[in-house]
Design a protein around this nucleic acid. Structure first.
Lengths: 144, 144, 144, 144
DNA sequence: TTTT
DNA sequence: TTTT
């Protein structure tokens, strides 16, 4: 039975995306995304809680992330949850949960310039009109 | 800046919910949820991929899960991602990612009876009309 | 500023999809989808409320809808809201709101056979493995 | 069978919310929300398309909308679709589709001041920390 | 460990 | 006009 595995996030990048180019031609960008929530605790104090998400963007989305996304920027990310296992240095099985992005939309104003090495969206012509980027679905379904 | 952290799943329970009653009166139900996806690989073979999610339902939702949900049942789960850390037996820091449920809706037909210890929804009067259960938001924001 | 316009529905088809083939080669399927909710009124009586949605599925999704979807079937539909205007017979401007589907996933058990004219999913080989269908995004963005 | 009827929007208010106080004590805020999308047409020209949504926020959310939301502001709105009918001046049955908001989160920077009559979030202490507002669910289920 |  |  087919199911649904969908994640919708609005948050701020914790760092510039890091892109790796794999053998075989595929590329993948990784970045962290902070989603903040605020609530009042039992004493009535305002509390901020930040959840950090590991985002992975593949192929076309990786290139877009590399070109247009920067630390601090507010984005909408839609994707799915994937938990993979790996062996740590002590040969123990470990798990990491990531969000595989299907769509990224830039929100809010200009990103803060920072000293990132990414082509700053700040002075890019294309960046002047905020954009949505989507993964091509046929590629989305290749195993990785 | 407040963000959005939303997960939407449709899948099948991998086991009956397990409920713990905490000191202080709160209760929490845990279960796993499988979301299946299907795609064709490069050779054109149909491949099934199952993602397993750890679901946590607190307080009122825990009681509902205990009463109405059973292994195998198809449900819609809406919630948020939460990664927490703990120390494993070797005193290493480990991370586990869970979905904190805000809303659970029972889908599809009757669950298979199984030999679970849960009050089977199959012969429960209330279960005859499939239902949606929501977390009370004020409680949802208590720290845990 | 790019925005987000996303709809997520789980409901039952009110009728078999009706497909039109437009000049130019595109095709579009229309069907209605019922989403039910239940609540208790002030007197404590259980009330059912049904919302009816107009779903439009274009091109590849239209063909899938025609082949696999039938009246009564439970489906997950993801898409976006679109309101368009038209002139009624008295030349008055009227509005109709539709959901343009991006993805349709078949849920639950077999559809009831009915006497629909659609190729019943019931005895179709492909239907034995429940499936997800997605719109190709590049086509999704053609104006219509 | 319970279903799902969920809408997720990120867009900008087309006008300040208008609040009505009903007999019986309930209040409701209405505003329009624009969600923009951009795509390239067949000639490769960049096209902007704006969809306008009618948002209704009840009770507690209405008060929050009145206090904190202003024309132009970027918000995340989560809710459900509701189509209701009414009789127009010629006694014809007409339909209007609205989004009944369950949750509103303020995004982006400060709203533009405008000349609205709403208590501007601009110089409100509470507004300095962007916030999320949710409908109380038990009230959410009262018929209206 | 689920489902078809 | 659906479903349980």
């Amino acid at each position: 039975m087919a199911g649904i595995n969908k994640v919708i996030l609005v948050g701020n990048l914790g760092k510039d995306p890091e892109v790796r180019h794999l053998e075989g031609g595929a590329s993948v960008a990784h970045f962290t995304l902070a989603t903040n929530e605020y609530y009042k605790d039992k004493q009535g104090n305002r509390v901020e809680r930040t959840e950090w998400h590991n985002i992975a963007a593949w192929r076309g989305l990786a290139e877009m992330a590399e070109k247009f996304l920067k630390k601090g920027q507010q984005v909408y990310v839609e994707g799915k949850i994937r938990t993979r296992q790996y062996q740590d240095k002590d040969n123990q099985t470990r798990y990491i949960t990531e969000i595989i992005a299907d769509e990224i939309t830039m929100l809010g104003g200009r990103p803060n310039a920072g000293n990132g090495q990414n082509a700053a969206a700040t002075n890019s012509t294309e960046a002047e009109a905020p954009q949505t980027f989507r993964q091509e679905p046929e590629l989305d379904q290749l195993p990785f």
